[in-house]
Nucleic acid binder design. Sequence first.
DNA 1: CGCCTCTTGTAGATCGGTCTACAACATGTG
DNA 2: CACATGTTGTAGACCGATCTACAAGAGGCG
Lengths: 357, 357
Amino acid sequence: MAVSRASAGSVTIEDVAREAGVSRAAVSKVIRNAYGVSPAMRERVTAAIEKLGYRPNISARGLRGATFTLGIEIPELSNPFFPRLLTGATAALSDSPYQLIIAPADPAHSEGYRALQALVDRQVDGVIAVSPLVEPDWLEALAADVPVVMLGRHDRSSAYDTVVSDDEGGTRQVMRHLFELGHRDIAHLTCETERTASGSGVPQAIRLDTYRAAMQEAGFGDRISVVRSLNGEAECHRAAMRLLTGPDRPTAVFACHDEPALGVLHAIADAGLTTGDVAVVGYDDIEIAAHPNLSLTTVDQDGERMGALAVELLLERIAGRAEPRHEVIRPELIVRSSTRPPRPRGGATRLGALGDR
Amino acid sequence: MAVSRASAGSVTIEDVAREAGVSRAAVSKVIRNAYGVSPAMRERVTAAIEKLGYRPNISARGLRGATFTLGIEIPELSNPFFPRLLTGATAALSDSPYQLIIAPADPAHSEGYRALQALVDRQVDGVIAVSPLVEPDWLEALAADVPVVMLGRHDRSSAYDTVVSDDEGGTRQVMRHLFELGHRDIAHLTCETERTASGSGVPQAIRLDTYRAAMQEAGFGDRISVVRSLNGEAECHRAAMRLLTGPDRPTAVFACHDEPALGVLHAIADAGLTTGDVAVVGYDDIEIAAHPNLSLTTVDQDGERMGALAVELLLERIAGRAEPRHEVIRPELIVRSSTRPPRPRGGATRLGALGDR
DNA sequence: CGCCTCTTGTAGATCGGTCTACAACATGTG
DNA sequence: CACATGTTGTAGACCGATCTACAAGAGGCG
């Protein structure tokens, strides 16, 4: 283990300077790779640092210069999509001097606000925000203080950069796939209303709007069926159960992301049905979706890429870029066995009807 | 939103003091709730803080006093068990002045070391370490600097507290359950060797040792079969495939945690078998294990409780406790449909053999 | 040789808080 | 009334770095 002795009590820059027989400023220059250092001095200072196991105190550093810390704020880590973002972000930083720290957004408190504030209070050099619910205005004010990259929301601002997936495109792929299989009674399972206000820029809102538009355009406007549910597997399961045992059982359910989709699969099993009876599509392509026992058709968002891209943009901002950048990732439909053609129920007329579109 | 304007440029304690017409020290006293503040002064200072939207700079604070920040280091967030810890820890802090920050352990770098160092460098008031692989000595040195709680490893030290699950007890429950169902050819799927060295205190090592002991004690010592695999679903799947298609197919597989167990279920499906042919047991009870399409028998570790307990111990340490505390959580076997009695294969003799134990 | 420039190193202010020591004043007590 | 005690507020050192301004010395050039 070539790991330095755990910060050894507290060796300060003063100690290093004494050991090397130079001034504090000299040591500072060496560790910052600043101008005005002779090879001889660098040598001696480096040796002293090594010998004493010196590590700069980031708090002290933060008072004047950079902390080499990037903060990322994440809601509900229980959703397996978010760790994908983190994996990408961490990997993108692995050879840089920057360290990523994560602040979990406690849902009990005002969602992302507290966590983002906490990061800024700690003098991070930049923040990545994943919270879908913080107000754009507030975020803009934040961006005046510190570089900000917003992940996964579609509103644009010149104050901060964004990385989003093309949610409309992804949803279009889902709907086309279901239409091509012959589905027309397609329900959409999404979150409670406040999160999906049209125009809010939240991915779920765009998926919902696109679902509606696609149904309209395909001539199935009268079959639009939107079911809302609170977060959590149990809640989604309950909502799905109502949907499946209700009077107008759809032949396919498109869930706003994979977790509710798994809840639908759960309900399908409980209702004694199979995905042959009711097709299911999710969104995100979380790892477990590929498991043969679930085999969920879904949309891959490449969270790793999004995380890495967010870090990249943030580092550019820190390096001085002022013009905003807004990156869009192309999602990809992954077809698995949870989507099959609808079973003919009331005769073959329906399939025929689709044929003459 | 009663959220203060995003740190508003940078209002310092100086500004607040001027606004309230008092000294910096007075403001400091108010925000720290220190002794020697009259109600009148408190009033004026509080008003000034409110008016200016002042937020203390944590870096500056860290230079002398506390940062009210707890750090937790987590390996591989992709494993859904770890978010459970975080949920518990976050919830335990939701009404305290402390903020949790997470440092992901980049597997590319020397696992937990870098992340733990990063936290200490940032002057956290205490750290929770989840890394199973950092050396106890190193951790002890760390604990000399800052309060430490080690989560999930069984070695004890007087320098730091620990929170662990009773892995031996959990494994005993698993083995008893399998024996009672009639299984004797039970294989154990675990991680690569370095992680499971006996006596290392790593949970996987204890589960392995207990598996071996239980098999011996039941008289099946000659049927002990340990399969090793790297981390990751794909790797586990491959290892499981070898096991299932090999000459001595076991009737049950006990995996060291849920992710490899899901890999085994995957392999079982691929091999055209069912859990009627090969029973599967996992460990951790991650959320998806309860899904009817998987229905994995596993051991619940109550990660939320462990996380909350770790925070509790850490706060005690910070408050001054010096004697170590070592908490043990009792795990609980959750029986689902992935474990059924073995199918009689070579006649009924085997079941008979079990009977005369 | 005198002057100019470039390199190398240092002194000391500064960042925004905390905390100790102490001054000023009020109150209680013999 | 003199003195001890308690309360309330302030001044200023201090934490550990960064960073500006500048001094000292080396080398180049007419």
